[in-house]
């Protein structure tokens, strides 16, 4: 299982060095549009996301319709393009539907954690002093747990299920994001242009929005994007341990786990959920890397 990228601090320390308010995003786009690999994998992600969203229209068959007569059939058996699982359900349809849960597990916790962690990070960074200590020392306690251990501990305590898994992943992801946001904010805060803005009479709120947020946003965003793949892998690992979503919900990690029993019957078909997770994870990793480069956040 991939761990949460550990270079959070360095990533943030190396954050913004200049005003990047105007023209920044167009520069990013300019860099990105010639980065064909990132674009290619971005297209792949868009494809996966769209197929998950439009699962009801795209899935060739009912993902929950089982049939004992057609269990564990090979690829291209009759109408089952990617074969069937241990209950005779269409693998392709389940993979498409499973994308909903699995992508949700990758994206939703990162999204929530980015908002929550980002908020506390910016707050701590901007306020400094005691508030900073209070927030950051609390985060430090969570940092004392390797992510997998923390996830297993929380998940093992809360029990299995979709909501519990999301809560677990969110809690695991908040501290590193918070730390990145805090470091970036602290750095931005001490920069000259903030003082200049203050001197020119700008309000705290406007400083926060115009300068701090904008300059903090890109490292946090880039860092968060690297977490999507980690979150997907972590979620599938929890499912594998029986701490994930409940069946019969189609979910890649769960499919991988249950099909393991049938691997001697249909090795190829049973490998598909693993391959799907791998490919998706690679895609997110490459795209987040491309973004990092395009947004000129130094790593």
């Amino acid at each position: 299982m991939s761990d949460i990228p550990a270079d959070a601090v360095r990533l943030a320390q190396a954050a913004p060095t200049a005003h990047r308010v105007r023209g920044y995003w167009s520069a990013v786009w300019n860099r990105l549009r010639y980065d064909y690999v990132t674009l290619l994998f971005l297209a792949l992600i868009v494809l996966i996301v769209l197929s998950a969203i439009f699962a009801p229209y795209l899935a060739p068959l009912d993902p929950n319709k089982s049939s004992m007569a057609s269990r564990l059939k090979p690829i291209l058996y009759k109408s089952f393009i990617l074969g069937t699982d241990e209950q005779g359900r269409d693998i392709l349809s389940r993979l498409i539907w499973g994308g909903r849960t699995s992508l949700l597990m990758g994206i939703a916790p990162v999204f929530v954690a980015t908002i929550v962690g980002g908020f506390f990070g910016v707050l701590a960074g901007y306020a400094g002093g005691k508030l900073n200590s209070a927030i950051m020392r609390t985060m430090d306690v969570f940092f004392a747990f390797p992510s997998v251990l923390l996830a297993v501990a929380i998940s093992g305590s809360l029990g299995s299920g979709l909501i519990n898994q999301m809560i677990t992943l969110t809690i695991v992801l908040i501290p590193p994001i918070c730390r990145v946001a805090e470091t970036a904010t602290t750095q931005v805060r001490t920069m000259d242009f903030i003082d200049a803005a203050r001197a020119s009479g700008a309000s705290t709120a406007s400083i926060l929005v115009r300068h701090v947020l904008v300059n903090v946003l890109s490292p946090v965003f880039v860092y968060s994007s690297t977490l999507v793949s980690a979150s997907i892998l972590l979620a599938s690992g929890l499912s594998f341990l029986g701490l994930g979503v409940s069946p019969p919900t189609p979910d890649w990690g769960l499919m991988l786990s249950t099909l393991r029993q049938s691997i001697y019957v249909q090795p190829l078909v049973c490998a598909l959920p693993g391959v799907t997770i791998l490919v998706t994870s690679i895609a997110f990793n490459l795209v987040s890397d491309g973004l990092r480069q395009a947004m000129d956040v130094k790593a």
Binding site: R10, Y36, V37, I282, D289, A299
Partner: peptide
Amino acid sequence: MQSNCWRSSCWPRVR
């Protein structure tokens, strides 16, 4: 730390 990104602009086929 200056980075040339840990990936270059194109990825080889993963073998």
